[in-house]
Write a protein that binds this DNA or RNA. Structure first.
Lengths: 308, 308
DNA sequence: GTTGACCGTTCGGCGGATCCGAACAATGAT
DNA sequence: ATCATTGTTCGGATCCGCCGAACGGTCAAC
């Protein structure tokens, strides 16, 4: 198996240019460096170095191995840093978070900011992903935490070995272009063109349910995008209507000049939750706690409280 | 520095459950395994194992180190596989490609398919990215190949140390809802609502230039998205017009029932190019060649040839 | 052209790390 | 209660990594 000390010699040789300099930098004698690099070449099965004048350069194979060496040595440093933090009693480690867009902006981002203060040794990586894709990846250890959403009436089963916790529960609102006068009821919006997320998403199913069951009409769904910012743009620019949860409003989404009509109905709502594997490391625990804090710090939505 | 042999012992211990089994799997005696794990604990500065009955389990710190160990050992295996391929005379290595959306679908994807056949030891990773972000990342070695676009009249400077090659040159087309009769001229489209990419992109600048200089009007630009599929949807659903290069058409983008009017004008067009650092490894060379092949295999656009 | 400084490599030898087998202690099933 | 199983400790043999010294090649200065 490749030896990290030898790979470090390779990296140092490339960075400093001469065997003597690499030896001096790492506290070895030049003869040792030369011998160890010979061993590395024998292990590699290919020439890694070639003489150039009175110096040595890396061959193409040497450069190829160098790339791996740099990556591996960085990984070792990360591991050692984490061990050092752990040995000092601080919680540390890498936590990979997958989150739906709206919660990413309003919950995950502030949680990461808070964690940078409270747990500097916890490294959080976050990607935007839909729960449908993220939950299988969570089970395969590709993520450690999933922040997902569940619309009322569409419960998601929690698979064995996973642990789900509610972060917050919120209302759904109708977003309309600015119109004077009293707030329209849902049934008044049958003639609107509608914007929604792609078919197959929870928002799309909720959109159809709300229009049919509460509004009593089949919506004229013309604009489809999973990006809520695009949905908002379609309201402003195309005169459409769309159904948005509280989280999406009020975050610089530019809904200030638009009309927001909350839907106060127990059958409609959205729950944002966190999902982890049951065996939580201290670092995952810290991230989960930070997500809860960030969710609780969210200002309550305008108007009456959402249904429990 | 952490030792890979010891990390492998840790991994094997966790996977097989007992010191004896780990020793047998790796050809060591149990005493050696026990001793080496003690050394690893001393290096780590924390307890990694704890006795549980007459077996031994990993502590939380042990699990933390295990994650790193698995990652590092995978990296070593990749490095060794690449070295073995290189020693056997085959070109191998990791090549990271960043590409704009349209070329990703039509050029990068088929090139990757072809490379899987011709160069099985070349591992290609590809991400969608705009040239503006990808080119600085290329210089920082975050990518190895960038597939970008340049609209006529908006030349991109080629930075020192980079090498640019044209993959193909294509026309721009006006995409309209299906309308009977003769193809409209650009000037006839002054009253249309238009869909375009976000301001700041090359497509947006081209969009403004074409409408103003060739059409003689200021476009009513209502719909903005960098996703060409959304632009197409706006044509179909909102009756908009949009300007699309050849590559975007005819790839299941659902433009079959829409009207396509090519713009035959030397001032309008798009060039798709590949960009690499000047020092190319054989693996990068192979990817560049595959991109060229895929671009040349593209069927010529309908109608007269694009301007040279 | 010659000399000398610099560089990488090879050789002999030392010391420590690694590994093994044997003996020992603890656990849990029979 | 017995015995197989598991992990650990100890003493010794071996191998690997390291050094200093000597050697051959390269380049620049005189």
């Amino acid at each position: 198996m490749l030896d990290l000390h030898r790979l470090r010699l390779l990296r140092e040789l490339h960075g400093r240019g001469t065997v003597h300099a690499a030896a001096a930098a790492l506290g070895y004698s030049p003869s040792t460096v030369s011998q160890q690099l010979s061993v590395l070449e024998r292990e590699a099965g290919t020439a890694l170095l070639e003489r150039s004048g009175r110096r040595v350069r890396l061959t193409p194979a040497g450069h190829a191995l160098l790339r791996h060496a740099v990556r591996l040595l960085e990984g070792v440093e990360e591991a050692e840093a984490e061990l050092a933090a752990l040995a000092a009693g601080r919680t540390a480690g890498l936590v990979r978070v997958a989150s739906v867009q709206s919660a990413f902006l309003r919950i995950v981002a502030p949680a990461i900011a808070a964690l940078a203060e409270s747990h500097p040794d916890v490294r959080v990586e976050a990607v935007e992903a839909e729960a449908e894709q993220a939950i299988p990846a969570l089970q395969l250890h590709a993520y450690d935490v999933v922040v997902g959403e569940e619309y009322a009436g569409q419960p998601r089963p929690v698979a064995d070995g996973l642990r789900r916790e509610r972060l917050l529960r919120e209302r759904i609102n109708v977003l309309l272009p600015h119109t004077p006068g009293r707030a329209p009821a849902l049934a008044d919006l049958a003639e609107r063109r509608w914007s929604a997320c792609q078919p197959g998403t929870g928002q799309h199913a909720m959109h159809l349910r709300v229009c049919r069951e509460l509004g009593g009409f089949e919506p004229d769904t013309r604009y489809l995008s999973d990006d809520f910012a695009i949905c908002v743009a379609m309201v402003r620019d195309a005169g459409a209507a769309t159904l948005l949860p509280d989280l999406v409003l009020g975050h610089g989404a530019g809904t200030g000049d638009l009309r927001v009509v909350p839907i106060d109905d127990a059958r409609v709502g959205r729950e944002v939750f966190s999902l982890t594997r049951a065996g939580r490391t201290p670092a995952v625990e810290a991230v989960a706690a930070a997500l809860h804090s960030a969710a609780e710090a969210m200002p309550p939505p305008r108007g009456p409280a959402p249904p429990a």
